[in-house]
Design a binder for these strands. Structure first.
Lengths: 216, 216
DNA sequence: CAACTAACTGACCACAGGGTCAACAAGTTA
DNA sequence: TAACTTGTTGACCCTGTGGTCAGTTAGTTG
């Protein structure tokens, strides 16, 4: 952690420098934005943590807003991937379980990204509205359609696909958003592996049974 | 909206003035904090919206932080009330339904409060940690105990009370936190009465069935 | 009504934070 | 290695914001 980039004696190509620094900045920025929100995060604080001068951050990202949007964009990509996997020919028993487990895992492994996303929505998605209306909506509607087909095949009870998806989103997402609250309430400093597992399993069970999906 | 407090010819007692202004400021502050978060909210903006000079706000609340904490305190009170109603001698069929409906209603009627609370948790509860560890935790444990007794009575399946409560919280809370996202995805400008109803009903059904609570 | 307290407010201040810029260093290329 | 591009940085600026304060007005009380 101590070594400075300058210490390296080997010459680094411009392209590499650029790639590395962009990556470093984005990653540090993600942490800070997740913890302190957009307004609560200062460029200087990002700079400090990345061990770069503030000016250097501004060299790569013209403004704080640009940097934030870039972080958001990366996050949305991750967010959409999992949903794509569900398809109507899979049985909800496996497909939903798989999706729920993935989502909880994502809450655990990409907690920062999840929280930024949540915070953005919470405050009216000022930077994300457009993306929501296009990319996310498309995927949302596709997934609802999958649910509808499952219902038509009588693989699950006839319930509102939209609200079901909201329910799955929020309860899985909660393991990122409210992980801290949860750990406090359970008297721990942090949720551990088994908490995420138990959570994912419980959500799966409740959702499957609750939707009348036949278990094996 | 146009009349200024000064226009009133009737004399107002100091106590009344104080009460009214405190109320006004707290209520406006709640809106702003919900929409823009702690750091995104300026005292001036609160002042503008309340049609009071900034100095006047600072007269009633020494600092921004004091004001914010006051808002939070009020919110937590509201938040805890509903949970108290559940007791072990009620049947989960009615008790859970009742609680879920209340929670969703709260998301609708006190969306601002809910969102501030969520935002606070999201960012590590810097101002709320203590309260969580005491007040909320007590109520949390009581409620988990109620669930346990239901399980013992075989009124519901043996599932983790903690995680079940998280699931109920997050999925009901979502109607405040992600109400905007939901409406965008459903192609509306705002969730309407029936959306909240459908949501509450769906959550209730899924939870009850999912927990193996016998329906009538 | 006089003395007092509570409510109110504009002017002011300190300073943090986003962003600019000019100069310089390091890599690239012919 | 010279000309050029890309990366790096400290000094600087300006706006916005939290907060102070002294002076004023409006209610209270003996």
């Amino acid at each position: 952690m101590k070594e400075n980039k300058k210490v390296s004696t080997t010459r680094r190509k411009s392209a590499d420098i650029r790639k590395d620094n962009l990556q470093l900045i984005l990653s540090v920025a993600e942490q800070r934005f997740a913890e302190y929100g957009y307004n609560g995060t200062t460029i200087s604080s990002i700079a400090d943590q990345a061990q770069l001068p503030k000016s250097n951050i501004l060299y790569y990202f013209k403004t704080k807003e640009v940097l934030y949007k870039e972080v958001l964009t990366q996050i949305l990509k991750i967010w959409l991937v999992d949903m794509e996997e569900m398809s109507a020919d899979q049985h909800p028993r496996e497909a939903l379980r798989h999706y729920i487990i993935l989502k909880v895992k994502q809450s655990k492994d990409h907690s920062n990204a999840s929280r930024i996303f949540a915070s953005e929505l919470l405050h009216g998605a000022p930077f994300l509205r457009e993306k929501l209306q296009t990319d996310l909506k498309v995927q949302f509607m596709k997934t609802c359609q999958v649910f509808r087909e499952w219902i038509a095949k009588q693989w699950m009870n006839p319930i509102s696909p939209e609200h079901l998806l909201f329910m799955i989103w929020s309860s899985t997402q909660a393991y990122a958003d409210y992980g801290l609250q949860s750990s406090i309430l359970m008297g721990k400093t942090e949720l551990d592996e088994s908490d995420f597992e138990t959570g994912a399993e419980l959500i799966t069970q409740v959702v499957l049974k609750g939707c009348g999906v036949k278990l094996l």
